[in-house]
Every structure is written in structure tokens, then in C-alpha cells.
Simulated scan of single mutants.
Amino acid sequence: MNLTDRQRKLLFVGLVVALAVVGVYLTIAAPDRDSSDSATPRTTPTTAASSGPTGPASPPPGISGAVAPSSFDIYRLLPFSQREFTTAADLAQRFVAAQGTYRFDEDPKVFTARLAALVTEQLRGEIERGATAPGILDERRSQQIVAEGTATLDRVRDIEDNSIIFLVTGKQQITKSGKQSTDSKQYAVTVARDGGSLKVYAFEPADAGQAGDTG
């Protein structure tokens, strides 16, 4: 195709403008792309979170100023807030009272269901196996045993990042073969973080000892 001098000049000018536009675009777009890549963190696949107890969301706030008896806040040094501590103490007390309350004519599943909301899944399974043991059921039914439990919080045995161990005295009013009696036993009750809540993790007679932290 034959072009006139004027047409060749116009074509040349058009090519120059097009190349200039492309150059400007590449100059502007490249930093933006690099900036976007560097601002976005590269993630790698992670394993699922542990189903066991998790630590506190943040460390205790601590105390930086002078310690004064009139304003000293012990919870600033503990891995549990006052609300969590209260919840844990309530759980330990209610659990001991509930596990000491049963009837010979009650379905063991009903007994276990009363404790289900207070304990971890693992402990619930252990309680269910104990409540359905033939020897225990036979004894309660043959002697028509009825027990009503109450509990007293005694003291804190240990505090760890994930758990608190309370010493709790369980008291029972027992009717056995028509005769009434009382019984009292102290337990070490571990309340631990279980996902987003607090649950009774373990319990045993206080004189048997018990490990503290659970996670």
C-alpha cells in the first residue's frame, strides 16, 4: 500500500503516542502489583487446632506501678480473670454436689445427663462407665440407696495457665436399707479450659494427689 508523506507522518505520530501510553501504564502498574503482593501475607496450610484446653487469649496484664494493699488486684497476675475464676469455682462446687446425688431407681443415663453440661466429653464417658457398672447398680438397688449431695469449696490447690484445681468437700445424706447416715469426702477437682468454655476436667480423692496443668 502506497502512503503519502502526510499519511506516513500521521502513522508515525500515532505509533509514538501508543508506545508512550504503554510505557506509562507499565511504569504505574508494576509498583502497584509489587506493593499488592508484598502487602498480602503468604499463608501456609496449618493443622487443625488442638481439641485440648487452650491458654488465655492474652497474658495477665501485670502490675507496673507500686503495689498498694488498698488497691492490689491479684487477678492482674493470674491467667484467669475474676469472672473465669468465679465460673470455675461454681463448676467445681456444683459438680461435686451433683455427682454425690443419686437414687437406686434412677436410670444411670439420667444421672450422667445431669453432669454432662459441667464436664468434658472425656470425663463424661468415664462417669457413664462408672455409673453403669453392674456391681454399683446391684448394690444400690438391693439396698435401695438414696443419696443427696452438697459441697463446700475449701481452697485452691494449684493454678496453671489452663486449669485450676480446687479442693472441695462433698457431703451426702444417705438412706440405705431404710437407715439414714452421712458421709463426707474431700476431692481435688480440676476445672480447665475446654474450647471456649470452662469444664470439669478431672476429679479424685484429695489425698490421692493430682497433676495441675492440662495443656
Rank of each mutant, 00 (worst) to 15 (best):
S142F: 07
K109D: 15
T152F: 10
A147D: 02
P108E: 13
T169D: 02
Q172V: 03
D183Y: 08
D161M: 08
P108D: 15
R141C: 02
R193K: 10
I127H: 12
T182M: 13
I127K: 09
T132R: 13
D194L: 06
A147V: 10
S184N: 04
Q143M: 08
Q172G: 05
S177I: 01
I164N: 03
N162W: 08
E128Q: 15
V110H: 07
L153G: 08
E128T: 12
D138H: 08
V156G: 00
S181R: 11
D183P: 01
A133Q: 12
S177L: 07
Y187Q: 06
S184A: 13
R129H: 15
A188S: 06
D158I: 03
D194Q: 10
I136N: 14
A131H: 07
T182H: 09
T190F: 01
R155V: 10
Y187A: 03
G135D: 15
I159Y: 00
G196R: 04
S142Q: 11
A133V: 11
E126R: 10
I174G: 00
E160V: 03
F166M: 07
A131N: 08
T182Y: 11
F166H: 06
L118Q: 04
P134N: 04
S163Y: 00
P134S: 01
V200P: 02
L167W: 04
E121Q: 12
E126Y: 05
L123G: 04
T132I: 12
L123A: 05
L167V: 12
D161Q: 13
V191K: 03
G125E: 11
R157P: 00
G149E: 09
K171V: 11
L137V: 14
E148F: 10
D154P: 03
L123C: 03
G195Q: 09
R157M: 13
K176C: 02
R141T: 09
R155I: 09
A117R: 06
T120L: 01
A116D: 13
I127S: 04
L153Q: 08
V189K: 02
